[in-house]
Design a protein around this nucleic acid. Structure first.
Lengths: 334, 334
DNA sequence: CTGAAAGCGCTTACAG
DNA sequence: CTGAAAGCGCTTACAG
């Protein structure tokens, strides 16, 4: 009854049953020929005595760790933690089904030392990159080291296995809807052009204009990074341009835009409409509720993890997986 | 130059230098007697050839993993992800200084299977519990298994090493300030009495009344869990009671209360003051800005991690560490 | 100061 | 169908 004493090993089991360690190992793994009766005897004993294989030792012998590295953005000012969080849930849930655990690592722009250590120490069998860059040290490092990895979000690097939402198509759809609702003058506010996803969103935005045959006023594009600091100034500028709608690339921006509008006592949606290319809980409690795109973060995590595990096991995997999205129309664009 | 080929091992180094593996091992670890010159020769070779010890093998030999398990709340409706997130940063940063990595695990109420697997598989040397309960399966399990662990947040269980902010004292101070500002009728809105921290906050609240010699109107306590679902009803009730101030236990509540007030066109702070026992980015963009307590999540993580590592190394550790806080007065209580 | 050898707890050709 | 033995890459008494 006292199983906290000393951990029981495969050798103990072998001794107790009068068989070899080999046999015990085979009974557990199911690999190699073994008598049905013998296997059952081993399994029964194991079950009764709460034997648990030492995954570390198993890993050493097989050169496997049963750990997956998840690289999170390590910057403080991150767009939407909730999204990564939920995605992480998905990864974890999927990993568990195959006995993998999650080793968490943070990476900051220009600092991938944390990831490097994990790889160099061979503590994981593969990695999931949660954020990608147009120029991506992480991708370069992992490719060089020949470590299996996938990305959530798209990567411009050749051969990278990527799982992403169809941002371009989603943004195109939302923009089209705005245009069809007769909002011709739409200001697009964004930031961080270094992220791949920013480019996709912008492309989708342009796509919609092209498809509708409406000329796009480039003066209504506010993509410079100073937006972050001087968002009030940006909003001022926008309002002077007599726009119908302010479209924000992500909710970090949306939140700040809404704040400025509130301070200026500008009513949404009466005075100006607002929508976001990205839906987070951050906006949930807003009055009015905000029109946005919805992406299923958990699904993203699960698919990414599944793909990585397949990759590790040498199975065939899709080079690029695009997940669906939803357009959620709310009060802010009424 | 081609270090992606085959990983170089301690044996390779020994061969190349014509010494024994023992010697190499000692040069690296710094343990045991070894000639100064020999050590330097080994170190130089290692450095030049990018030798990296296999942490897994090292772990096997020492029965160590150099992994720390961090148990995150795995529920979807979690109060403030940002806080846990930042705390995780702190943990990670501290762990790195000693060569530890973070194995992440989620635990839901009544489901600690994920934690169990990690422990039973001996994949970590210790664990950090990020959320504690009055009745805590995790604590019971870890104690039984004799695994070193610490908690961020307090635990009522005997002998548990805990690192926490001084919530009781903080809430007392904030409440006192409100009382001194002549807000006599303060409604306290909370939820989830199962968390230890809820109890601490409530105690601090009561402390302030006692100290000021003011009788507390128990009718102004709204701690039942239905608040979550019927927050609008709760706010209605509160407003009918003619209160000066609504004090929210955490920001999940605060956010929803503010939303209801906004919908009812009730002005903060003119019609009613609002403050929160907890400060999150969620409220950052609110107009008006919200008075609240500030807790340094990163520091919490760092101290917790430091403590755990000391515990693992058999050093003496404090049984309970209380971290300081700040009261941040803003517009909502003007 | 240095080394041969056993050991950490598994897996897996190779024999039988 | 089963087992003895070598091996995964380290550490660490024990000798010298």
């Amino acid at each position: 009854m006292n199983n906290t004493e000393k951990n029981i090993t495969i050798a103990d089991v072998a001794d107790a049953l009068g068989v070899s360690k080999t046999t015990v190992s085979r009974a557990i793994s199911g690999k190699g020929r073994i008598g049905k009766e013998t296997r059952e005897r081993v399994l029964a004993y194991i079950d009764e005595h709460d034997y648990m294989p030492n995954v570390i030792a198993k890993g050493l012998a097989q050169s496997k760790t049963y750990n997956l590295c998840v690289v999170m953005p390590g910057d403080y000012e991150v767009v939407d933690w909730n999204f990564f969080q939920t995605c992480l849930f998905g990864i974890q849930e999927m990993a568990q089904t195959e006995g993998y655990d999650i080793l968490l690592t943070m990476s900051r722009i220009n600092d991938i030392s944390s990831l490097e250590r994990v790889i160099v120490n061979r503590k994981v069998d593969g990695v999931i990159l949660m954020r990608t860059f147009l120029e991506d040290e992480q991708v370069e490092f992992l490719t060089k080291k020949k470590i299996p990895f996938v990305t959530t979000g798209s990567s411009p690097y050749e051969g990278v296995i990527q799982i992403d939402h169809n941002h371009r198509s989603a943004c195109k759809e939302l923009t089209s809807i705005m245009l069809m609702k007769n909002m011709k003058r739409i200001a697009l506010v964004g930031e961080d052009e270094g992220y791949v996803v920013t480019q996709s969103r912008l492309r989708g935005f342009r796509d919609a204009y092209v498809q509708m045959g409406i000329p796009l006023d480039e003066k209504l594009l506010f993509l410079n990074p100073e937006n972050r600091i001087r968002i009030d100034k940006t909003v001022d500028e926008i309002l002077q341009k007599n726009v119908d709608c302010i479209l924000c690339m992500d909710d970090a921006v949306t939140g700040r835009v809404l704040k400025v509008l509130r301070e200026k006592h500008i009513n949404v949606p009466k005075d100006v409409r607002v929508a976001s290319f990205y839906d987070s809980t951050m906006l949930e409690d807003n009055v009015p509720s905000i029109t946005s795109l919805y992406f299923n973060a958990k699904e993203l995590g699960m698919v990414a993890c599944r793909t990585l595990m397949n990759l590790i096991e040498g199975k065939e995997v899709e080079q690029r997986t695009l997940l669906p999205y939803n357009v959620v129309l709310k009060e802010s664009t009424k």
